[in-house]
Design a protein around this nucleic acid. Structure first.
Lengths: 216, 216
DNA sequence: CGCCCAATTGAACTGCATCAAGATTCGTGG
DNA sequence: CCACGAATCTTGATGCAGTTCAATTGGGCG
């Protein structure tokens, strides 16, 4: 246990993603850094905090009775998560990338702010709706596409969300197994899809965790 | 075209589902009745209205390039839908039951009300979050379960949402094809699951659209 | 009563999971 | 800096759940 859960981080050097949110909302947050597979919150935990990914990636998941982990959503920099209508969390969220940085907001203070500040209320509503639409897109992907189409769609999505414009390809923050769990297919099938897509010239594998997208 | 799209309905005899919402929100609504497969709103339509199912059922769907209809969510009495962060709708919503009754809310007036009335803002946030959680459950169902488990889970969900306590079984408002599209399986597989579940004694088929749930 | 759509059943095919065995990469400590 | 071990990633072979195509039955409504 090198890192205690959610080590607090100094607030200087604010990453760019945080500067986009309203200052009054940002003032309520504090930052924590998480290791890979470290839980940000767990099932049955009280829903008294909201979170936003600053850097890295996190995923919402459920432990199945057979011991396997089922992913329901994946959060990338800028995404707000942790809100619910319940008292206790139905799903857990853990970091999938090493050193994932998370901004934490005390729920009651955010809701109090939303009650008096319409801009904050709108920002929250937009974030929740965006989570909803991400989920709809994912549902569309997992129910209608073949395994290869799922992987292709997933890579395009990551490219849209993460491309830095540096041109040395796209760095995937997550493993094949994570990708498989998100798409509802096996890790082996993900591998085969990667190689097939490369043979078709759609992508180039620069390394296991680094790819280039050639064409859509 | 017997019925023009969204025939207005008199406001007397308000169904029970509407009495639960805040009076100030209800005051903004007007009712419309829809026929089976009639669109409530379509893709690319402006997102200037929100809706709530009063009776019957509706589904959110997308027309695929191969002409097939892909369902993303299903709305039952009490569910609020139509909100988005976009200017235009990405998905369409149509009635799946004959004579589905929908309450319509002008978006700008609801948002203006939400801005000054914290209770309304909270009600909206809760509804959106509930849509989100429905979708997460559905994602879990479609990605992890076998076809027969999906159908069983679907029937139990409908039972929870629609059971009237009359005891003559559960009336399904939608066709096998609709069920298949929601669960991401073929209609034939849905049929086979129905008969298998009956043979196992889990359900009884009283008619094509009427079942009884015997045990879980 | 007869038509039409919905529901059901059957048979052959296929994409993906699963099991198994290597190949690479990465982190860790010497 | 290098070497070792443990993940992670890749590739192959087999089996099966579910799709697809096709035909038949059944119900509801004019």
């Amino acid at each position: 246990m090198v890192d205690a859960p959610g080590t607090p981080i100094a607030l200087h050097r604010l990453p760019e993603v945080l500067t986009a949110e309203p200052a009054r909302l940002r003032a309520l947050s504090h930052l924590r850094r998480f290791r890979r597979e470290q839980d940000i919150y767990v099932q049955e935990e009280r829903t008294d905090t909201w979170y936003r990914v600053v850097s890295g990636a996190a995923c919402k998941y459920l432990m199945r009775t057979d011991g396997r982990r089922q992913l329901v959503d994946i959060y990338l920099p800028g995404d707000l998560f942790g809100f619910t209508a319940r008292l206790l969390h139905r799903f857990a969220v853990q970091a999938v990338a090493e050193g994932t940085l998370i901004a934490c907001y005390p729920r009651h203070r955010v809701e109090a702010l939303a009650e008096e500040d319409a801009e904050t209320a709108l920002e929250i509503r937009i974030q929740i709706v965006e989570a909803l639409e991400r989920l709809q897109e994912q549902l569309l992907v997992t129910t209608t596409m073949t395994a290869q189409e799922k992987v292709r769609e997933f890579l395009f999505y990551f490219h849209r969300r993460l491309s830095t414009g540096t041109g040395n390809g796209l760095a995937l923050p997550i493993s094949r197994y994570d990708i498989a769990d998100i798409l509802g297919i096996s890790a082996e099938t993900v591998c085969r899809a990667f190689t097939d897509l490369q043979e078709r010239g759609v992508i180039s594998l620069l390394g296991p965790r680094r790819i280039r997208i050639n064409r859509r």
